[in-house]
Structure formats: structure tokens, C-alpha cells
């Protein structure tokens, strides 16, 4: 992995976001004072239960939602500044949960071209970007197909290609694997790894703990606030707190905790199954 100079690409300053809800007197607070700096080229996983505010946070990053309090900056552009909205959305692409409801066109390559077309890029250059993006997600062979003929994992890869073709600096994934089967999930996670290697900043919103172990940093959200924040090895020291928030710890972490209670010496910081197996069988 290339080492990048530490540079903040997404800056979230004391963000507050409130929804008006039917049948309730006041607005309900989805995000309650969140501050985060995300470094260029990093891979940050944001986890939390449904309703913890993680998806709202994602939508605040690329100006689909605007802060009620505080501010969000992407590559120096402030999201609440109406003039820079397209600069922000081009820099911070987004992949959503439902693979079906984010594809616009009935032909795969036309869909991938949708973003670059909106940016007003010249047709020859769109062609190059579409072909490269489809190649990157291994869907070039399916470029003439209709999305409804594809599996969930394939559709999600097309959606990723659609974002990649816009050449964003960061991509925010809002529970991209929640509706996929294990195979589709593996396909999508593999592509995330490749994008990270290419130096694209990734923010992955998920509630699958296993998907976070490859991240550089884990942010756990609870009730609209950041509950835990740090590298995986450090965050997973707090297994008790994680469980109390209605989340599961990854298998290796949970097992390590249980074996420690049984009196075995298991070092902290083993978060993947591979690391745990390597330690146990050393």
C-alpha cells in the first residue's frame, strides 16, 4: 500500500443534524455533535446500529443533506456553500445500499457513463473512463447487458464503476453489502480493497463487523455520537462496550476475549481470523 502524506480530505466539525418527524413535537436529532478528520487515502469504517446516525453522517459528507449545526468540508469545499456542491459531489462519490435503485440506465455501460455525462466530459474521454471503470470492477464483459439480468453483487459493482468513472478522491459506501449474498459481499469487499490500494479515500458504513477489520480506522456511532474511534486493534479492546451498543465483535476478537477469561495469554490486537490462527498455531 502506498504511503500517503497525512492530509485531511474530509473534515467534519461539530456536526448536528435533525430530522422533522411526523407525530412528534420537536425534531429528532440524528447526529449530535460529531467531529471527525479523515485523511486522504485512508480507509475508515463507520459502524453502528440502525438509527445510530451513520447513514445520515454519510449523506452529510457529499451534501445530499446539509448540516443543521457545525460544518463539513470536502477537499476544502464547505458543503453548506451552494456554489461548491458539484465540486463536492464529484470529489466524494457515493454507493448506496440497494443495488437496484441506484442504476439509471437499462444498459450497463450507459449507466456507468451517467456521472461523467453529468460532468460534461467529452465523449471520447467518457468512453475511456467507462471502459477503465468497468474493467476495474471486472464487469467489462457485461457492459452491454441490462442491469436486471445481473446478480446483486454484479449490480453493486456496476454502481461502483459508475462512481469510479467520475474520478472521485473519496467514495462513501452506505451499507453496500447489506442486501447481497456472501458471494456478492466478497466481490464488493475485494473491490474496496483494490480501490484503497489505488489511493482512493474510502468511508465504509456497515453493520457487518467482519468488513471493518481491513480498515485503517473504525468509528463506532451510537445515538448520533462517536462512541469509539481508532485503529481496529485499539477499538476492539472495548468488546464489552461494543456489545452493549447492540453490535457483535469480530470472531477473532470475541474468541480472544473468551480465551483470555479462560486463563490463556492472547495478545490484544489480533482482529482477523488469519492473525488469530497464526498466533494459536505458532
Amino acid at each position: 500500500m502506498a504511503k500517503h502524506a497525512e492530509r485531511t480530505i474530509i473534515r467534519i466539525e461539530d456536526l448536528v443534524f435533525e430530522y422533522a418527524r411526523d407525530g412528534e413535537p420537536g425534531p429528532s436529532r440524528a447526529i449530535d455533535g460529531v467531529s471527525l478528520d479523515i485523511q486522504a487515502g485512508s480507509f475508515t469504517a463507520v459502524i453502528g446500529r440502525n438509527g445510530s446516525g451513520k447513514s445520515t453522517l454519510a449523506r452529510n459528507i457529499n451534501a445530499l443533506l446539509l448540516p443543521c449545526g457545525g460544518a463539513v468540508y470536502v477537499d476544502g469545499f464547505k458543503t453548506s456553500d451552494a456554489a461548491s456542491i458539484w465540486e463536492i459531489r464529484q470529489r466524494a462519490g457515493m454507493v448506496f445500499q440497494n443495488p437496484d435503485n441506484q442504476l439509471v440506465s437499462a444498459i450497463v455501460e450507459d449507466d456507468v457513463a451517467f456521472g461523467p455525462e453529468n460532468l460534461g466530459i467529452a465523449p471520447d474521454e467518457i468512453r475511456r473512463r467507462v471502459d477503465a471503470a468497468l474493467g476495474a470492477v471486472d464487469m467489462y464483459g457485461e457492459r452491454k447487458k441490462s442491469p436486471h439480468m445481473l446478480s446483486g453483487g454484479q449490480k453493486q459493482r456496476v454502481a461502483i464503476a459508475g462512481v469510479v468513472a467520475m474520478r472521485p478522491k473519496c467514495i462513501i459506501f452506505d451499507e453496500p453489502t447489506a442486501m447481497l449474498d456472501p458471494q456478492g459481499r466478497a466481490e464488493v469487499m475485494k473491490i474496496l480493497g483494490e480501490l484503497h490500494d489505488e489511493g482512493i479515500t474510502l468511508v465504509l458504513i456497515t453493520h457487518f463487523m467482519e468488513e471493518t477489520v481491513g480498515a485503517d480506522r473504525i468509528v463506532i456511532m451510537d445515538a448520533g455520537r462517536v462512541a469509539l474511534d481508532g485503529p481496529p486493534a485499539e477499538v476492539f479492546r472495548h468488546v464489552g462496550e461494543i456489545r452493549a451498543m447492540g453490535l457483535d465483535a469480530p470472531l477473532a476478537v470475541e474468541l480472544g476475549e473468551r480465551l483470555r477469561k479462560r486463563g490463556h495469554y492472547i495478545p490484544y490486537g489480533l482482529v482477523t481470523v488469519e492473525e488469530m490462527v497464526a498466533y494459536l498455531c505458532r
Binding site: R49, N50, Q97, A178, M179, H207, M209, G246, L247, D248
Partner: peptide
């Protein structure tokens, strides 16, 4: 259980 969070 598809698409639900761990608690649900």
C-alpha cells in the same frame, strides 16, 4: 434476517 442490523 437479510438487511437487518445484528440486534434485530
Amino acid at each position: 434476517t437479510a438487511g437487518l442490523d445484528p440486534k434485530s
